[in-house]
Design a binder for these strands. Sequence first.
DNA 1: CAGTATCCCAAGCGATACTG
DNA 2: CAGTATCGCTTGGGATACTG
Lengths: 155, 155
Amino acid sequence: MPFTAYDSETCSIARTLALVGDRWSLLVLRDVANGVRRFDELADHLGVARNVLSERLRRLTAAGLLDRVPYQDEGARARHEYRLSGPGRELAVLLVAFLTWGDRHLAGPQGPPAVIRHADCGAPVHVTLRCEDGHDLGPRPRLRLEPGPGSRPRA
Amino acid sequence: MPFTAYDSETCSIARTLALVGDRWSLLVLRDVANGVRRFDELADHLGVARNVLSERLRRLTAAGLLDRVPYQDEGARARHEYRLSGPGRELAVLLVAFLTWGDRHLAGPQGPPAVIRHADCGAPVHVTLRCEDGHDLGPRPRLRLEPGPGSRPRA
DNA sequence: CAGTATCCCAAGCGATACTG
DNA sequence: CAGTATCGCTTGGGATACTG
């Protein structure tokens, strides 16, 4: 019998999904990670309604994924732009996982429209699973979910 | 200037998100990966409305993430259960990425309710980014998005 | 430029009842 | 047990107009 004694409140997958699992948040993060940092740029590039973008930026900032930092162009008023915080940058692996899977299974005949590279050396980047015993798990890993420290009985 | 000449139609992140980026799909896949394979089990464990579950199972099956396989308990009618297909299993890395991030940033004081282990050796599993030059990129990688083969100009 | 405010629509979801 | 059918609500989202 599988371990199912976790609920949708505490499961980390569910929680993360609740935070960034809507239609726009991850795309906002993708763009910010990619250097698109200002409100109008984001609105234009994503094609998202402005009120929605506004709400997302607020939520992601409140959740600590984005930092709202002031900047000043010469002669212009001070404004803000958005940057990934530390935790936000840690979501990169998630974005790469999405990208990789989509590249393999949903790309058009020409191949994917974008590739991701290591900024330091320029080589393409891959996401891999590896266990603490040093095994590489490959693309179709054999996994087991087990009770963790915060496990609690289900009603 | 960042590379922004990809659109929300072809971006693999956006496409994957369009497929599994709703409130339930990834949780369904999590449960199926974890051995919860039958309709009522899924409905009970997830707490999702039955019509919604029905629609999700159909979509995920149609998309080739789940296989609908017949089984037969002794003395009972033949029925179906759901299993991860090959492409579905490849989503594991995505689930682990969600889990890992949530464990680090959203878990309660007691720690996460579940941990994921290598089924073969029992060791905890981690997701890592690594480039083709062999560099380990760590949790906060420096990445660059660049045009890929299927890149096309934006309107 | 960087948002906020309003309005409206559509999709998504939950609850429930029903069927083979 | 494994779904389908129907209903009504709620939320998310798009369009647009407005403000500092």
